[in-house]
Design a protein around this nucleic acid. Sequence first.
DNA 1: TACCAGGATGTTG
DNA 2: CAACATCATGGT
Length: 301
Amino acid sequence: MTSFTIPVDLFSWEESIDYLNRNPLECTHLVKNHRVYKLLELPDASLALLQLSQKGEQLVVETNKQVAVEMQQWLKAYVSNWFDLRRDLSTFYKQMEQDALLAPLCVRYEGLRIVQIPDLFEALCWAIIGQQINLTFAYKLRLRLVELYGESEEIEGQALYTFPNPVRIAGIQPEDLRPYQFSQRKAEYIIGIAQAIIEGRLDQQQLATQSFEEAHRNLVNLRGVGNWTANYVLMKTYGHCQAFPIEDVGLHNGIKLLWEHDRKPTLEELKVLAKSWEGWEAYATFYIWHHLMKWEREAKF
DNA sequence: TACCAGGATGTTG
DNA sequence: CAACATCATGGT
């Protein structure tokens, strides 16, 4: 057992776990009793069960096994990335003060940080799975992929999975996924990206050293990755705050909800709205997603 | 039943 | 280059 803490400031644990708890088909983490459990594959390929909780101005990280000091540093960086803890949120809030759409959300969800997908392969797969289908179906497809090819352990009476690694996915065929209602194309995209990673043509660390524009070019060069997916990944894995998935239907629906007009914005209207978000488009988008998610959840009951 | 879904690609005019 | 067609099926 290893335990350490990360100091946090201007951070809402409750909003963060509320976001993590947004879908019951989620299987790579578990939210229970204000704690988050996650099964993680460490750099040395061993599995560790993480348990996160909040205690005052600290985020408490506990593992189910003894972890060496250098691995603790890796875990600390992982968790900091996961919840984007190093971001200076006050700059975002200041810029949004005069924004009609965002100002109220910044007050209501103060301390919410973008919940990242620290692993590039996972982020790409999730984005591709979600292309042009409803989220409920997307979660079902993701669950099947994870059940088929992820590692699992039981915690709190529930199975937790690691997201499959690219080595595993690179060895399968599209036909292996077709019975699980993956389209032929999506299966090809995901397997192709797994192969690009294991062949070294796509490298998470390398993209991390590149500028937003350069990383964007390299991402859209992958088959199955267009502008929306590239921006989604630049936002959710690399924390580029200027990443803006402007084609996103969820964003459009969120604005429809916040707007007085009972319709979705056109692309041109969205560009005008987003002018005041410059440099913080990813955060504006995430807050709108979060708001829409909470509204839809309310509407069901 | 028709239309929409956290789009991308390939073809056509 | 812009406008279509196609993918592929669940959810509402």
